[in-house]
Design a binder for these strands. Structure first.
Lengths: 218, 218
DNA sequence: CCCATGATTGAGCGATCACTCAACAGTATA
DNA sequence: TATACTGTTGAGTGATCGCTCAATCATGGG
């Protein structure tokens, strides 16, 4: 973490690229723009990063290493209840959408669909970020497990929550209104509330009914 | 639709761009590549489309005008039950993920996060495609309304289903495994099943939190 | 002092980017 | 045949792309 040696140019480039990638995407952000905003010359960038993709990797590593300071801590300072902390995290993305007028959503989700077919290391880091997010949600759900059905699949539910959030951000950014996000979180809240209040009646989602599995459904 | 006049070059360019945008994204696909794959010269493209963005607009209009043939009809031929038709549509995306080895997800979702900050007409068409998809799901849910709670917000639930699907595709493409998609659809199936099987006990998701019994929160 | 090392400079590389345009071909109508 | 209109051609535009590199600077140790 603390890069105590050096002049700070490397960190400056990572943070500049991070912000520009978030606003414009990876492909739409040129190296020339990054170095111009950072106030350095192209050679300096390529002294630290062999390619533009290595800079993207460093940005994704930054997100992975700063999830607590940037995402969790502001929520955990306000909220103690583990279940409400999960919805607090979701509310953080809501604030981001509103404050940036839907220009910024989830940094990882933005990049995920854009660079999925690129270098394996990039995909690996996208996955690491998603897994870290999911694990943190799962940790909170485990702390609230007393209120949830015993047979609940906490990792699966956590991943489901991530799916809902990413999809809802996509719709909110496209529509440029918060309604799709609020609608999705409300449904999610209802789903979780049902587990809390009626745990014994909760059916573990397991029956996979894919048409591809053969039988014609009527 | 039936462009009976002309030589077909315009349609050929739209379909070629559609396929390349789906595989590589909008920004990563160059005009030179489109005309090379289509077997025409750059001048022909710019005879029909003033800018590359106008070609993207034509592609989005194509998706809007061909949702039935490309997405719904293959499902509706197999499945009659309106509720199962919804999950049949979702299974179509599952097949796409598997058949393309996670290279192709939802064509609209791919573009949505990439070009959200571009020309208003593009955003408008992305929205039109999402709304059309949601409306079709809502139509099916309405046909199945007899099995659903009377007070259910069908448009809201339809939009929620779209959120879940788009987020699940994002995760499946990043992880390069179908598990996140199956997990999300299973949770969605469970959510809908609960409404069908226990409609009277279903509460409209809005202000339903920690009803009567002891408050543990904070 | 000298030197090694880390860091920076800035001109400039070839390739590709979206895009242009004057010339021309094909076909139908007059 | 003459005119008009729809497409097509392909060389070529300036700008920007990611990236290179020999030269230079700053700094601390021996």
């Amino acid at each position: 973490m603390g890069n105590e040696t050096g002049t700070g140019t490397r960190d400056l480039l990572i943070e500049t690229a991070r912000d520009l990638f978030l606003l414009q995407g990876y492909g739409a952000t040129g190296v020339a723009e990054i170095v111009r905003v950072a106030g350095v010359r192209p050679g300096s960038l390529y002294y630290f990063f062999p390619t533009k993709e290595d800079l993207l990797i460093a940005v994704l590593e930054w997100y992975r290493d700063n999830i607590y300071e940037g995402l969790l801590q502001p929520v955990y300072e306000r909220i103690d209840d583990p279940l409400e902390r999960v919805f607090g995290i979701l509310d953080g993305y809501r604030q981001m959408l509103l404050l940036t007028a839907y220009d910024q959503g989830c940094p990882i989700g933005n990049l995920a669909l854009e660079v999925t077919n690129s270098h394996p290391r990039v995909r690996e880091l996208l996955k690491e970020n998603f897994v870290q997010w999911t694990d943190e949600v799962a940790r909170n759900l485990t702390l609230a497990a007393g209120r949830l059905p015993a047979e609940i699949d906490i990792p699966g539910l956590s991943e489901y929550i991530l799916s809902v959030m990413e999809g809802a951000i996509m719709l909110a950014r496209t529509y440029r209104t918060i309604d799709p996000y609020d609608n999705a979180i409300a449904h999610l809240r209802d789903y979780v509330d049902r587990m809390v209040e009626d745990g014994t009646n909760w059916a573990k989602p397991s029956r996979f009914r894919h048409a591809s599995d053969g039988e014609k459904t009527l």
